[in-house]
């Protein structure tokens, strides 16, 4: 069952003198429970595609339909609520809130949902266990390694059990061991929580783990292969 349907997506940046066509007619369907990698060279439009799917950026043309909602038609506030309730984000630079502990970063999303403290605590414990660092619960991000921070970012993205997770180059800043570890965790969570994962990546290890690989080039889908 399709969770995301993308139709003829166009995005052009006019910030420089020459317009840059980041996305040039992308059509894509992502099914529920997929573990998909979007690959391609720098500037191929991977991050732009993820940003538009996540409602962080607006396309110039085309549609992004997530279940029955065309997110381009939502207001700014509606998009925020939509992201909160349906999408989890993992960023390349971890992007944890530095003044909150690991656990608080996870619970922050749950608190935005209005989930009571006792339930928040249960869920954060569960996720800290799932990402393998329960002992780091009360430590702030700057005291964690890059790999540990990214694991907390994964836990945060999963906190509210979103329909899918958008991960923009999640292993780019990690060493091999940390990257492998993280991918294994995400793969397990994908299976266990049935969460759809969509990665943009250059990392061969991610591509290897992905069950579907979509290759972008010059803003167009060059290939789409399922394993």
């Amino acid at each position: 069952m399709a969770i995301i349907t993308i139709k003829d997506l166009q995005k052009t940046y006019n910030s420089s003198q020459v317009p840059v066509h980041a996305l040039n007619g992308v059509d894509l369907t992502i099914d529920e429970g997929e573990f998909t990698a979007i690959v391609g060279p720098s500037g191929s439009g991977k991050t732009t595609l993820l940003n538009i799917i996540g409602g962080l950026d607006d396309p110039n043309d085309g549609q992004v339909i997530i279940n029955d909602t065309e997110i381009n038609h939502l207001s700014r506030a509606e998009k925020i609520d939509f992201r909160l309730h349906h999408i989890g984000f993992i960023f390349q630079a971890y992007n944890l809130i530095p003044v909150l502990t690991a656990r608080e970063n996870i619970e922050f999303i749950l608190e935005l949902h209005g989930i009571p403290k006792s339930k928040r605590r249960l869920r954060s414990n569960e996720l800290l266990e799932a990402v393998g660092i329960p002992e780091k619960a009360d430590i702030r991000p700057r005291q964690l390694s890059g790999g540990q921070q990214q694991r907390i970012a994964v836990a945060r993205a999963l906190a509210s059990s979103p329909r899918f997770i958008l991960a923009d180059e999640p292993t780019a800043n990690l060493d091999s061991a940390s990257a492998d570890n993280l991918l294994t965790i995400m793969e397990e969570l994908n299976k266990k929580e049935k969460t759809t994962f969509i990665f943009s990546t250059h990392d061969a290890r991610v591509v290897k783990k992905a069950r579907r690989v979509v290759t972008l080039e010059d803003g167009k889908i060059k290939s789409d292969s399922k394993k």
Partner: peptide, 21 residues
């Protein structure tokens, strides 16, 4: 799928603001 509005997070807001200080 519809969008929902949420009003939670006030405690976190206060906590983050205080720690940011």
């Amino acid at each position: 799928m519809t969008t929902q509005t949420t009003s939670g997070g006030f405690k976190s807001i206060v906590k983050i603001a205080w720690r940011n200080l």
